[in-house]
């Protein structure tokens, strides 16, 4: 069986919030290393890969592989009943038809308990190859969100160009064009303000802003975001969490002209 206790419900609330507009029905694949999710959006342009490591829970018990088939709209309805600071416990049997969730207020004067019906979801899993990306950019997640939102007001796509002079986000729209260029920032006092650019070769790729803006819903999970870019492969947008857990989004580039 699965028993997983989170010190703060907000971790799961934020993760589900960040992906529920991209994917609807998906399996939480549980084993002794944690809870994983992999799902594509309906149009097969983006892929969500979530890993909540056992280390992010206390305690975490799961002695065999358990697939928890969830509708994220339904899960959201239940999670809305949890306060951010509540202790959240997930429980499921080995071949579950429901997921048990309890929310315990931190001063323990209230315990809420819910059982959510599960779905049988036959999901395709894609093998994501290990990639040495040509450019890796680490930046404040709020900055990335602002860039995507600002450019989306002008155009439906953005060209991300990483070179020795920095990283440039450029768009071309009906009303005109715009670009934002970022250079390396080293803020010793506040490392989360840093912009780090690791480049092995220049890259330039075009992506749909609609998806990028959607990924930015994960902003609350982490103060920093990492973009991994190589020519002609999907962009990886990564939000890292405590305990080695992560939420990753892959986005297929636009192709041809």
């Amino acid at each position: 069986m699965l028993e997983a206790r989170l010190e703060q419900a907000q971790l799961l609330k934020k993760v589900v919030d960040a992906i529920k507009d991209l994917v609807q029905d998906c399996n939480f694949d549980c084993n002794d290393s944690g809870i994983a999710l992999q799902a594509m959006d309906n149009s097969h342009v983006a892929l969500v890969s979530m890993m909540l490591k056992a280390e992010s829970f206390n305690p975490f018990r799961c002695d065999r592989n358990i697939a928890i088939g969830l509708n994220l709209v339904s899960l959201t309805k239940v999670l809305r009943a949890a306060q951010n600071e509540d202790i959240l416990t997930l429980k499921a049997e080995d071949a579950p038809d429901s997921l048990n969730l309890t929310f315990e207020s931190s001063d323990k004067d209230r315990i809420s308990e819910y059982d959510l019906k599960l779905m049988d979801i036959d999901q395709e899993h894609l093998g994501i190859p290990d990639t040495d990306y040509s450019a890796t950019i680490s930046m404040p997640s709020a900055e990335f969100k602002r860039i995507c939102t600002d450019l989306m007001a002008m155009s439906e796509s953005v060209t991300i160009e990483a070179g020795k002079d920095g990283i440039k986000f450029a768009c071309n729209g009906d009303i005109g064009n715009g670009s934002i260029t970022l250079r390396t920032v080293q803020d010793v006092e506040n490392k989360e303000n840093n912009i780090e650019i690791a480049l092995t070769e220049p890259v330039s790729l075009t992506f749909s802003l609609k998806y990028l803006v959607n990924f930015c819903k994960a902003q609350n999970l982490s103060k920093t975001v990492k973009l991994h870019i190589s020519n002609e492969v999907p962009l990886l947008v990564e939000y890292a969490m405590e305990g080695g857990s992560y939420l990753r989004f892959y986005l297929a580039p636009k192709i041809g002209d």
Partner: peptide, 14 residues
Amino acid sequence: GAGQGNIMSFFSKK
């Protein structure tokens, strides 16, 4: 304009 790539053409089915 550019066409939108499909994620399944980059990642293989397991």
